[in-house]
Amino acid sequence: MNKLTFGEQIVTCKTGDTVLDTLLNNNLTIPNSCRQGACQSCLMRCLNTKPPAASQIGLKDVLQEQKYFLACICYPEQDMTISLGPQANLFTPATVISKEILNPETILITIACEQPLDYYAGQFVNLRRADGLTRSYSIANSRKHAEKMTFHVRRLAGGQFSQWVHQELSVGDSIEVSDPQGLCFYLPNRQEQNLLLIGTGSGLAPLAGIIHEALEQGHSGEIHLFHGSREMDGLYWIDEMHELQKNHPNFHYTPCVSRGDTPEGVARGRANEVAMSTLAKLKDWRVYLCGHPEMVNQAKIHAFLNGASSKDIHADAFHVASASLD
């Protein structure tokens, strides 16, 4: 018999009962459907120990790493503290320590957190300013500098948070940072796997973090980055990426623009389309997609049809919060 702590409730799980049975028997509402580990409706997360391996079969490796499990096939081996979906959001104070222009619409900010945060390269955090306005931004550095985090913030016309970051936020100012979140991150398993990374606009931020992390960890597979924007103005770090390519023979960089003139070395077309026509066979590849939601969605399906397994496709769509959510 093991105890299950679920929010405020503590219930006892009888030997031979699953977590799902136990919660349902206690009249707790948990989404579920097939009850055999297939449909993943009853996905839950363990907040203390590692869940039994058998309850994680079929989940993406990033979900397994974050202690997600399927309640319907989970027979607890010890007491578990569990939740549905992400944990309650905790914020840590931080200070802006530098601000740098990347291109006319994108700014790089670096913050130092009071406590180093534990994150994986590619994850995002929620940044909260004093009046409570909160937006998600991807961590752009690898895990080497965990007390410092960098972000690439693209200014949207009329965008409340991004305009404020561009125009008002200054070095020395305070800002709050949530726990790192999201499943689009690099794990140093299967280092021989080829990686395809496609980003639009500030979608380069998490991808740059992932690439640096992979290279620092000695990733041996080929690493292909396609960074796209409508016009040349929307690209950045072109020289830095070329430099990285020079120093790492397994890293390949293709900047792409879909409109206007393309200088030599820049591909003409949308980043996802250029990538998919260059790399038509993605069987056994690992894919990371970040940026414009429509690009992310199209590229996901395209990568899958080109042979990538859905378990190996990781994506963060930069959905813009709706005005009504503020």
């Binding site: 459907s33 097939c34 055999q36 297939a38 449909c39 993943q40 079929g58 993406k60 996901k300 399906i301 899958f304 859905s310 496709i313």
Partner: peptide
């Protein structure tokens, strides 16, 4: 896509007469 694929797992388990 991930959720859809998970549902298709249920489809196959069923088509194979597996536990469901």
């Amino acid at each position: 896509m991930d959720a859809q694929i998970a549902k298709q797992k249920a489809f196959f388990t069923m088509a194979f007469g597996g536990p469901n």
